[in-house]
Nucleic acid binder design. Structure first.
Lengths: 153, 153
DNA sequence: CGAGAAGGTTGTATTGGACAACTATCTGGG
DNA sequence: CCCAGATAGTTGTCCAATACAACCTTCTCG
């Protein structure tokens, strides 16, 4: 019948801590890289999925389409993504990361990864691997529960 | 010599996912409770630490003192915290959560905890406990690395 | 072919946060 | 004892990120 409420409070505390720390990492890296943090997530998603629509990005990103629209506009102006009309649907825009965009993303990732790697210097590869595994299970369950109910309700 | 960069990328991906999900949880709960999300973190910190200074809260919270100052002002207006002058230091303010503040916090927590508890219905108490433990180690290491260097540098 | 649905964009408001300037208080060396 | 610099907090100003609503365009289906 699942964990106790006490444990869940602990989980929430952990979430809160991660939230803060992610914010700090983002800000720290932002200071030395000329790319807006929110746009990074978008760029990363494009790198992972390849050419995508605005609406798809919004859905995956769990944000309003208008947000993605503006971010894409910004990234396009910076030359980090390109858009082209979708052949099969004249309403849709297909967005791709440019090679310059991918390079910029790599730079960001490098900086972030370095921070994390240094912070986890005491961990073994196995520790981290196991942690990531469990972390993944956790986020999957959470996501499934948070998103499905909306449709079912 | 610590984990590989690949593992660290996985960690970052996990962080990003948590970031989004926390955001969704917060928004969802916010819709049904009349308390600003950021203020909740503050209130929770006050409940955990007891009477605290603005500067302490800012430090723990990893934000600028001005942010805490405004949040406290808001919470005070809502009757959820009280401030009193510090005896030993005339510059400082001591902030405490009122009983009404604690109740409100509980309400929030209930709603959040319920979400998490439902999401983790398949987990055993031990699973969650172990997860929280490792999660704590992770955030501690990350926090230590992110904050100490500032002073040392 | 026309009505309604769906994809995107733009206008507007809100939240959360940073930084800088300012006031009030404290503290330590002359 | 007193003044200079440090420290606590507040307030003014700015910006990023997001949501929601109104709108235009294009699609789809009866």
């Amino acid at each position: 019948m699942g964990p106790t409420r006490e444990s869940c409070v602990d989980v929430l505390r952990g979430l809160h801590a991660v939230f803060q720390l992610k914010h700090v990492i983002t800000t720290r890296v932002w200071e030395e890289r000329d790319l807006h943090p929110a746009a990074v997530g978008l760029l990363a998603e494009l790198a992972r999925r390849g050419e995508s629509r605005v609406s798809e990005l919004a859905q995956v990103h769990l944000v309003d389409p208008s947000v993605v629209s503006r971010q894409v506009a910004q990234l396009e102006k910076a030359g980090l993504v390109e858009r082209r009309a979708c052949r099969s649907d004249g309403r849709a825009q297909l967005i791709t990361a440019t090679s310059r965009g991918l390079e910029t993303l790599d730079g960001w990732r490098e900086a972030q990864v370095t921070l994390v790697q240094e912070a986890l210097a005491d961990w073994t590869e196995e520790d981290v691997h196991e942690f990531v595994r469990q972390f993944g299970l956790f986020t999957d369950d959470l996501r499934a529960h948070l998103l499905v109910p909306e449709a079912v309700r």
